[in-house]
């Protein structure tokens, strides 16, 4: 698999406080990678490091295979756009002027991309209105448009829906999906809003206390958090036979527990198992949400605001 970003034991320390500690992450090309973590978990610090806004205390990272110590890292950075923390825009300028300004910074030969980008983020009708008079959602979209100048193929977004109203959240989500699907842009997005991340991400990295707790693909997570019936039985082999006969999807967890994913007629199942000499001790609906999965990973008793 080709990775856009990889880190190796990356660490960042503020005096004695470890914001990132031996942090490892691999962001596959073409993915929407969601970094999920509590406030102060180290999400923004990670994004600042890979954007070159801060220097790692130890460890390394590579962008497109280029190590951060290499002089060529600046070339790799030209392939990325970022909105870290607040949107980085000139408040005294219009949306058009902001994009033109970024074109100048990038050294683009002309401003031909500006109307297209404004159209893409839905700001083409803002005219002479200055960015300081924009709503939070408009500023966020303008920030993303600025990050998209120069046609990057890696976009880094830090809490992009924070503080937005429901409509703004939907707009940003659709924009991110559009960029990923239509332009094949790899997106690294941090958030602590799990449900929102659930609608976007193809890959997840769960982070807590500056450490990567687990990296998991959306498919794997879906499987983990899938709705099912969990049955405690005396004989899982007999249960498997019955479930195969009934053509139901299932997963044997251990020698006593089976997860059944399809809808099932319980009385028929229990009688079929009984015929095979298998007892059913208990049956319960099992539905692990992303939230409960996250909490099971990071726990609830520690962390919180660390900075």
């Amino acid at each position: 698999m080709e990775y856009v970003l990889q880190t190796s034991a990356l660490g960042k320390t503020y005096r004695s406080f470890k914001a990132l500690d031996n942090f490892n992450i691999s962001v596959p090309k073409g993915s929407i990678y969601g970094i999920v973590g509590k406030n102060g978990a180290g999400k923004t610090t990670l994004l600042r490091l890979i954007c070159g806004l801060q220097m790692p205390t130890y460890g390394t990272y590579s962008l497109y295979g280029i190590n951060d110590g290499s002089p060529d890292i600046v070339k790799a950075r030209r392939r990325m756009g970022a909105v870290v923390e607040t949107p980085s825009i000139y408040l005294d300028m219009t949306a058009t002027d902001n994009l033109r300004q970024q074109c100048r910074v990038l050294g683009l030969p002309d401003f031909s991309c500006v109307p297209e980008l404004l159209e893409l983020v839905g700001l083409s009708d803002t005219g002479r209105k200055k960015a300081k008079n924009f709503s939070l959602g408009m500023r966020q979209r303008l920030g993303i448009a600025v990050a998209l100048c120069g046609e990057p193929d890696f976009l880094v977004l830090d809490e992009p829906v924070n503080g937005l109203d429901p409509q703004g959240i939907v707009e940003i989500r659709e924009l991110i999906l559009k960029l990923n699907r239509e332009r094949d842009i790899t997106v690294l997005i941090s958030s602590h809003i799990l449900e929102e991340m659930h609608k976007l991400a193809t890959h997840y990295g769960f982070i807590d206390g500056g450490c990567m707790i687990r990296e998991i693909s959306a498919e794997e997570l879906e499987a983990t958090c899938r709705k099912c019936i969990r049955a405690d039985v005396s004989d899982t082999q007999a249960t498997a036979l019955v479930l195969d006969e009934m053509q139901l999807e299932y997963k044997i967890l251990d020698n006593k527990q089976v997860d059944i994913y399809d809808a099932v007629n319980m009385s028929k199942l229990i009688s079929a198992l009984s015929e095979k000499g298998c007892e059913v001790f208990s049956v319960q609906n099992h539905d692990e949400s992303l939230e409960s999965y996250f909490l099971s990973l990071v726990g609830t008793g520690k962390g919180g605001e660390r900075r």
């Binding site: 954007c51 070159g52 950075r77 980085s88 910074v105």
Partner: peptide, 8 residues
């Protein structure tokens, strides 16, 4: 940040 992030 817009300057540093894009490799200036």
């Amino acid at each position: 940040r817009n300057k540093i992030t894009v490799g200036r």
